[in-house]
Design a protein around this nucleic acid. Structure first.
Lengths: 187, 187
DNA sequence: TATTTTATTGAACAGTTGTAAAATAAGATT
DNA sequence: AATCTTATTTTACAACTGTTCAATAAAATA
């Protein structure tokens, strides 16, 4: 299967457009392979040549979005150290802006009964960001693994709450919430 | 549908035993309704009279386990205040012992591609525990919602990492990890 | 015990799933 | 432009899904 073959690009794009269209009508878990192929005007066998299930198409979207998140942190002047509260500037935390940008998408990721795979993809990405930003603190040995998962998933907890508030707060609001919570520990 | 009808109790027990048996052979997501009914010696129509999908049976287990977790915190002498590090006694954190007790079960909950529903059931339970244990701190207004989700999901992060280490650490080890992480913020 | 209630069964149905093989056609390669 | 490569289609198949209905049998109730 050649990723650059025009035929592949065409069918994948058809499937992508079809999924986006169907997602406006019904939740991801209710979309059947047959239905998706009918909408995309491709044969069901072709679908199974590229994917295993409908969720795999969603994962493909997700990977692109993860790249976008990663890139927003590759700008060298941006630094977010969740442990160093004193030097934490709300403007430097790009995660919430990223989530807001893809709000409709993340409403699916955090919805009930969807695969946990999507949750863990974001978790792992945020965890990587924590590791890269805290590369000065290496002295905690084995505790590091737990510290990073603790910190990353705490952020995820804020996003869960944000989702449950239907993303009404702005991204900057969320940064302020984070700062305030971290400052509680200093008092 | 009468929950106390002997016929209902009998069929539900058959289904429960069948699911436990099948879970030893294959992941939850691979178990078909037909397969489960064959194993339980009940009619497929009977299954659909009680459940919608295989995962619903798992949820039924889960609810019992959530009751067990809740009860382990109802003993009034136990208090866990995740914000008050100074007064936090490792022995009082019962969550990790609970997880260890149902380790095999939680290996499914935290596995990839399973429904997020199970994750959120545990999250909500831990969040409730945080709220009850921190009922002295009400001064933060709207921030409370975010603070509780932050704290609860941070604990979930430790459990994720524990899962990824195949639950090799003991429950007491986990309590120590938690204490150490919380103490980092004081330094 | 006799009667009523209702959970369970069995059968049938259209639709979906996942897989496989040969035929076709679109695109890549020379 | 001619040939090679392979993605796509077509068709077929057995198994599973989700639902419905009448018949049955198990349990509750009086």
């Amino acid at each position: 299967m050649n990723k650059n073959d025009l035929r592949v690009l065409k069918t994948k794009q058809s499937i992508h457009l079809a999924l986006i269209k169907l997602l406006k009508k019904k939740p991801l878990t209710h979309i059947k392979v047959t239905e998706l192929c009918r909408e995309a005007n491709i044969n069901r066998g072709t679908f199974y040549f590229h994917y295993q299930e409908v969720g795999d198409v969603f994962k493909e979207f997700y990977e692109e979005i993860m790249v976008d998140l990663k890139e927003s942190y590759q700008a060298p002047y941006l630094h977010t150290n969740f442990l160093d509260v004193a030097n934490l500037d709300p403007k430097t935390v790009r995660i919430f802006h990223h989530i807001k940008k893809y709000e409709d998408f993340y409403k699916i990721v955090f919805s009930q009964d969807v695969s946990t795979h999507y949750y863990f993809m974001l978790f792992d990405e945020i965890r990587s960001i924590c590791i890269e930003d805290q590369n000065t603190l290496q002295q905690y040995g084995e505790l590091n693994d737990y510290l990073y998962s603790y910190s990353a998933n705490a952020i995820m907890g804020l996003i869960i709450e944000w989702y449950r508030h239907d993303f009404k707060d702005s991204a900057d609001d969320m940064n302020v919430h984070l700062i305030n919570i971290l400052k509680l520990r200093e008092a």
